[in-house]
Each structure stands twice: as structure tokens, then as C-alpha cells.
């Protein structure tokens, strides 16, 4: 179908990209965990993450494997090894970060085009920070009962998270994603690929929209959508206690417990099922994205 030769990776080359992205981003994550933070009033100057590593790898190699590898590296090096693994809370980070890096990698069609690289880097950071901001806000809204009873809490959470979002995008985004990516991608392009035994991505590679919207992309969107739906749904169940009052009267407070567990388990199993299906698609060889 295609007139030009497609940039395809073998199974083991994908594994190489995965391991490369995982170990590098994992190591950088350990370092950023240790760099102290500076506060200037409510504005925080911190090295949030070295996003340039997965960003440049996603632009140079396969976006999906670089993205998943980086997220896994963060979980293993930055969380499990330092003993701060947050369990299920990490799932949200994992999905958000993978999606952001993946989209950033897909945006860049020609790694030598600086404009595309810059656009991709900023898009990746903005998507990731936006998702994590929304989740943080929801966390407080769901976690604190009688949110309205506390004056100013709902607004203050939005303000704090909004400032953090802007701060992360402008400070971390420019200093640790945009500039280093612009520095690294042209230097690495053509140099790092032979080390993994592959040819550089073609300059004239043009992707149609149908090639971007492939199975993994749709699945990622579905997973993300169901996750946000899960949050939405849970918030409904915790806030909507009133109509369950008779049940509580009859069985006592503990009825709350099993009632709440059911939606959690259902939602979790849906997510696990989706993730698993996604994994299987990956190994069975779906149509290549890039």
C-alpha cells in the first residue's frame, strides 16, 4: 500500500527500546526524587521530572514502547525501589504519562524538524500535567466528605492545583522538557539507532490520520476514559448517600462497606481486562504506528 518503506521494528528491537527507555527514565526519576524543591510563596520551583528522556526516545524510536517503558521505569526505580509504591494510585500516573509521551512521539513525524519536536515536547507535558491536575482535584473532592461544609476548600484545591499546573508546564515543561529535547533529539538522531541495530526514522515519513488512530491508540483512549468514568462514578456513590438511608437504618453502618466494594471491584476488573487485552495486542503484532 505504502509507496515508501515503512519504519517497522522487530519484536526484539521493541524490547530494546522498552528496556532503554525504562532504565534511563527510571534512573532520572531517582535523581529528580533527590533534588530539593524551592518554594517562592505558593509557587514551587522543583525538578518535577526529566521528561526530555522519554520524549526524545519516543520521537526517535517507537512512541508506544518508549512511553510504556518510561512509565514502568518510573514505577520500578522511583517507586518500588525507593519503597514508595502507591499501588493503585500509580495506575493513573502510568496511564497519563504513557498517553502523553505516546502522543508527543506521534506528533513528531520528522525528528529533524525543530518546530515539530518543540510542539511534541510541549504537548506531551501539557497533556500529562492536565490529566494529573484533574485527578488531584477529584481526589480531594471525593476524599473529603461534606466538601461544601468547609468554606473555600473546593475553590482552594482548584486554585492550588491550577497554579501547580501552570508552574509545571511553564517551569518544568520549558526547562526540563522543551530545551533538553531540542538539544538532544538532533544529536541523538542517526547516532543512537545504529547502536540498537536499526535504521533512523525516515525524514519524509508522512503519516495519515488512519495510521495514527490505531488499535493501541483507541485502547489507550478507552482505558483513560473508563478511568475518569471510574472516578466520576465513585464520586457519585460517595456523595449520594441520602437515598440509601433506609438500607443503612436496617443493617447498620457497615452496609456501606460491601456496597462500596462492589463498584470498585467491577471497575478494577474492567481496567485490568482492558490493559490485558492491550498487552496481548501488543505482543501479537498489531499494525505498526510509525
Amino acid at each position: 500500500m505504502n509507496t515508501h518503506t515503512r519504519f517497522t521494528l522487530t519484536e526484539s528491537q521493541k524490547m530494546m527500546v522498552f528496556i532503554l527507555s525504562m532504565s534511563l527514565y527510571g534512573l532520572s526519576n531517582m535523581i529528580t526524587e533527590l533534588i530539593p524543591k524551592f518554594y517562592l510563596g505558593p509557587i514551587e520551583f522543583s525538578v518535577e521530572y526529566f521528561a526530555f528522556i522519554p520524549l526524545s526516545l519516543a520521537m526517535i524510536f517507537h512512541p508506544l514502547y518508549a512511553a510504556i517503558g518510561a512509565s514502568l521505569g518510573e514505577v520500578i526505580f522511583g517507586e518500588i525501589m525507593l519503597g514508595q509504591f502507591g499501588g493503585i494510585g500509580e495506575l493513573e500516573k502510568f496511564i497519563a504519562f504513557s498517553l502523553a509521551i505516546f502522543i508527543a512521539g506521534v506528533i513528531v513525524r520528522n525528528p529533524e524538524n525543530k518546530k515539530q519536536v518543540a510542539l511534541g515536547a510541549m504537548a506531551g507535558v501539557i497533556i500529562h500535567q492536565f490529566i494529573s491536575m484533574s485527578v488531584d482535584i477529584l481526589k480531594v473532592w471525593v476524599g473529603v466528605e461534606e466538601l461544601d461544609a468547609v468554606e473555600g476548600l473546593a475553590e482552594s484545591v482548584v486554585v492550588i492545583e491550577g497554579i501547580a499546573f501552570l508552574n509545571d508546564v511553564l517551569f518544568s515543561g520549558i526547562l526540563f522538557a522543551l530545551l533538553p529535547t531540542l538539544y538532544l533529539v538532533p544529536r541523538l538522531y542517526g547516532k543512537i539507532e545504529p547502536l540498537l541495530g536499526m535504521k533512523p526514522r525516515k525524514n519524509d515519513l508522512q503519516l495519515g490520520l488512519s495510521e495514527i488512530i490505531t488499535v493501541p491508540f483507541i485502547l489507550a483512549v478507552v482505558v483513560l476514559g473508563s478511568l475518569s468514568f471510574l472516578f466520576e462514578y465513585l464520586s457519585e456513590t460517595t456523595f449520594g448517600w441520602e437515598w440509601e438511608a433506609p438500607l443503612v437504618d436496617r443493617f447498620g453502618e457497615w452496609i456501606v462497606f460491601p456496597v462500596m466494594v462492589v463498584p470498585v471491584i467491577i471497575a478494577l476488573s474492567v481496567i485490568i481486562f482492558l490493559v490485558k487485552r492491550k498487552g496481548r495486542k501488543d505482543t501479537d503484532g498489531y499494525s505498526e504506528v510509525v
Partner: peptide
Amino acid sequence: IKSFYPLMLSVAKRSRTMV
């Protein structure tokens, strides 16, 4: 940040060997 550039190349080599 700059130190990651040589590291990227050497880790690339290493991950190839590994795979």
C-alpha cells in the same frame, strides 16, 4: 541533563546486548 547524552548511548548499547 547533559550527562544523560553519553549515558543514553551507552545504555542503548547495553540494552541491545541484553536483548
